[in-house]
Write a protein that binds this DNA or RNA. Structure first.
Length: 276
DNA sequence: CGGCCCCTGACG
DNA sequence: CGTCAGGGGCCG
């Protein structure tokens, strides 16, 4: 499901509804989603914890407790977190329900069950989650950083933008959107990009992320009504999911291709290939 | 590195 | 029925 802007939206919506509450109960409906530690320790560790705040790092979320213990969450493709009153209909694929002292429940819903939870004690090594391997956040980028980290690679720029160890948080949707607004072909090899490309990418990557976060802004009620899913901003996208439609800049028909195993939509005129 | 895996659901 | 889906990990 979600890339950085959606994960950030979840963080904002959920944080303001759970902040300051304590965990009264943890109901594990499907322990598949608990990556670490085992189910018993997971539940007993969480009960009694008081929530200080929620953080985001790349596409990871973490609930930070007063104790400085943390609950890391990765939603992967279809994971959803919602805050609901206990009487709110419990839908199919609800795997985890956390009862809070403010009378609400934090629920995890995930049809494909790819998402994972990790409970990490204060001071405990968090590397099991994968969060430590992440590159920098996609804000305040410099052209030099991009050139140094991508510039020598003989790989398509689209593929490199998805590498979470260099920049964290960009996924398949926003890599297409970033390349469209930068007028760069998704299959362009990094080594064929020049300084002007790195300059424009250093601007368009943060701009695209910030723009999408703003577009995703939603009230608690609307978020819950959409089951924590429907806010996602496909209506605002320029190219993703718009194969066969007209380019909004030049009206050329948008094309779809496969880059590094991922589908990619682009404008063949605005995003011409330069190198080969 | 490419290829396969994890899963369910939507769509052609 | 087959194919694809916004994620990432692991294997050889």
């Amino acid at each position: 499901m979600p890339e950085l802007p959606e994960v950030e939206t979840v963080r904002r919506v959920v944080e303001r509804q759970i902040k300051g509450a304590s965990i009264l109960s943890v109901e594990v409906i499907n322990n598949h989603v608990i990556a670490y530690p085992d189910e018993g320790s997971f539940v007993s560790s969480l009960v009694g914890e008081k929530i200080d705040r929620m953080d985001r790092r790349g596409k990871f979320l973490s609930i930070v407790f007063d104790s400085q213990d943390r609950l890391f969450i990765h939603l992967r493709m279809t994971g959803c977190l919602i805050v609901a009153p206990p009487e709110y209909l419990r839908e199919k694929h609800t795997h985890l329900v956390i009862g809070l002292s403010n009378g609400k429940e934090l629920r995890y819903i995930d049809p494909r069950r790819f998402g994972r939870f990790w409970f990490i004690r204060k001071g405990e090594d968090s590397s099991i989650t994968g969060v430590d391997k992440l590159g920098i956040e996609p804000f305040n980028l410099t052209p030099l950083f991009l050139k140094e980290n991508y510039g020598k690679r003989n790989k398509p720029i689209k593929e490199m933008l998805l590498d979470q160890t260099i920049i964290a948080g960009i996924g398949n949707i926003y890599s297409d959107e970033i390349l469209f607004s930068s007028c760069i072909n998704p299959e362009e090899r990094c080594k064929d990009l020049d300084d002007s490309d790195w300059i424009i990418l250093s601007k368009k990557i943060p701009e695209t992320m910030e723009w999408a976060i703003r577009e995703n802004d939603i009230s608690d009620a609307d978020y819950l009504n959409g089951k924590g899913r429907d806010y996602r901003n496909t209506p605002f996208l320029s190219v993703y999911g718009r194969e066969g439609e007209k380019c909004k800049r030049c009206s050329t028909i948008l094309k779809k291709t496969v880059v590094g195993g991922r589908s990619s939509v682009y404008c063949p005129l605005c995003q011409k290939r330069k190198g080969k």
